[in-house]
Nucleic acid binder design. Structure first.
Length: 492
RNA sequence: GGCCCCAUCGUCCAAUGGUAAGGACACCGGCCUUUCACGCCGGCAAUACGGGUUCGAUCCCCGUUGGGGUCACCA
């Protein structure tokens, strides 16, 4: 059997290290078997998918050194490789399922579903899924309502009883009761398929042999297996990778750890070091060596050798590895060249210089004033973050809401940043100064600093957000409870 | 809460049905060095708990505990 693996990221945010992790293992497994590695963009979420994110993901994968044989940018015999370009394919398959009685239109409104769910939670019901109200509607009725223009989704018919079993390559047989699974939506009201339908159709049509992805998907495998059955297809091999964790063991999240590949790039990590580090999460070289290239990994790799305890992503050890690459694999000449690629290039130097030019008494002042543009973290103290008449819990809230808003900022420049910060200040009914004060501290680590907005523009979103979160930790951080409350109130 | 997954030093990764349970990061000492770093030497530190199976279990089975995931017209 030809080995074909795929990476199927959804372009809804920053390129995540977890995505790079899955990419590495999928890529390596394909190469071990002289197979192909496919990149497919899963953009079936119209609300959240963006071209900018797709572009950023492709770029970050290229930066880290992962290449693909087929994908939206390079094409291939199984295209198109962007799900939004495959709508007619899904439509066909959904129609087939309805015609064969495996799926049905559902007219329940969101409000009704919310109410049903709420009631079930209150009753502490074991199964809190959809109550299948529309499952037994007559096809004629349904057709009539659709013709009348009523909004509907399509759901798949899950067996009411019995159990589903499937094999995970690393875990063996996994069994789940059908009763614990509700009738999954496979087509949304906007006509787009959901992940569950699209992933099955595409993996089959693209002849994917091994699905290598995160453990968070294990619980939805029964639904996928059932779809394979409906279509009369053979499911691929399932291999669920352990999830990368924060130091506190929760699933790796940007609140507790920088998760954007771009952050690591900007902070001066070498792509080969990051990739190597990812390779030692859940796996080790046959000789236990810790520093290895992707080529070496391909020579020693076997999918079944992955261990299942979810590894903590430890930035300290990553830094140690990165340091080894810097000192062991680079002459001063090579390092100098890398530095130029990283930040010491005319473009960036000019941007930075524009920000500090008016402050220079001598050219030699330049280094002093621009250090913050060539650093990862910056020295922050409580004093630097203090705001007159505000307690630090309030400052923390201010900073947190700012981070949330910055995450969503599509166009990153001084004007948009300025507008956004004013907006945040307004929300809290504070003067802009109450916000820019602590931000100067967080971003610049000094009271002597160039203008905030342009500095942030030059520094870029990843570094800015990471620094603000680091500053929040200096103030003790927000508790989970407070965070939840705040999120309810301000996060939009 | 239901269901699913997982369980070796603080962290990452080894090991065998019989071991002094090994390496790396971090940490602590020391050496080297004009300083720091690198490098070298040494130290601290783990089989979650309770039952079985077995002559013998860290390893196999069961339970408990703990951690994680998942229960969307998000992926």
């Amino acid at each position: 059997m030809k080995v074909r693996t795929r990476l199927a990221p959804s372009p809804t945010g920053d390129p995540h290290v977890g995505t790079a992790y899955q990419a590495l293992f999928g890529y390596v497994w394909a190469k071990v078997n002289n197979g192909e590695f496919v990149l497919r963009i899963e953009d079936t979420d119209r609300e959240r998918s963006t071209n900018a994110s797709e572009k950023a993901i492709l770029e970050s994968l290229k930066w880290i050194g992962i290449t693909w044989d087929e994908g939206p940018d390079v094409g291939g015999p199984y295209g198109p490789y962007r799900q939004s370009d495959r709508l007619s394919i899904y439509k066909e398959h959904i129609d087939q399922l309805i015609a064969e009685g495996h799926a049905y239109p559902c007219f329940c409104t969101k409000q009704r579903l919310d109410e049903v769910r709420k009631k079930l939670v209150e009753e502490k019901a074991a199964n809190r899924g959809y109550d299948r109200k529309c499952r037994d509607l007559s096809p004629e009725d349904a057709t009539k309502r659709i013709a009348a223009g009523e909004s509907y989704v399509v759901r798949m018919k899950i067996p009411l009883e019995g159990e589903c079993s499937f094999t995970d390559l690393l875990r063996g047989e996994i069994v789940k009761d059908w009763a614990s699974i509700d009738d999954q939506v496979i087509m949304k009201a906007d006509g787009f398929p959901t992940y569950h339908l699209a992933v099955v159709v595409d993996d089959h049509l693209m002849e994917i042999s091994h699905i290598i992805r995160g453990e968070e998907w294990i619980n939805s495998v029964p639904k996928h297996v059932l779809l394979y059955q409906f279509f009369g297809w053979e499911p691929p091999v399932y291999c669920h990778l352990p999830l990368l964790r924060n130091p506190d063991k929760s699933k790796l999240s940007k609140r507790k750890n920088p998760t954007s590949v771009n952050y690591y790039r900007k902070a001066g990590y070498l792509p080969e070091a990051l990739l190597n580090y990812l390779g030692m999460m859940g796996w080790h070289m046959p000789d236990n060596s810790e520093k290895f290239s992707v080529e070496e990994m391909i020579n020693g790799f076997n999918l079944t050798d992955i261990s299942l305890g979810s590894p903590v992503f430890d930035r300290t050890k990553l830094k140690w590895l990165n340091a080894r690459y810097i000192r062991e694999d680079n002459s001063p000449e090579q390092l100098a060249a890398k530095l130029q690629g990283w930040a010491l290039n005319p473009e960036y130097i000019q941007k930075v210089t524009e920000v500090v030019a008016s402050r220079l008494e001598t050219l030699s002042d330049w280094g002093y004033f621009t250090a913050m543009f060539f650093s990862d973290t910056v020295p922050v103290t409580e004093e630097l973050l203090a705001v007159k008449n505000l307690e630090s819990p309030e400052v923390l809230e201010l900073l947190q809401v700012t981070v949330w808003k910055l995450e969503k900022l599509r166009t990153w420049n001084s004007e948009t940043i300025s507008a956004l910060l004013s907006e945040v200040a307004d929300i809290f009914e504070l003067k802009l100064k109450a916000l820019t004060g602590p931000l100067y501290g967080a971003i610049c680590g000094s009271k002597v600093a160039p203008p905030l907005f342009t500095s942030m523009e030059v520094l870029g979103s990843d570094l800015c957000r990471t620094r603000i979160i680091a500053a929040m930790n200096v103030l003790g951080g927000l508790s989970g409870k407070k965070l939840k409350k705040l999120e309810k109130k301000y996060r939009t």
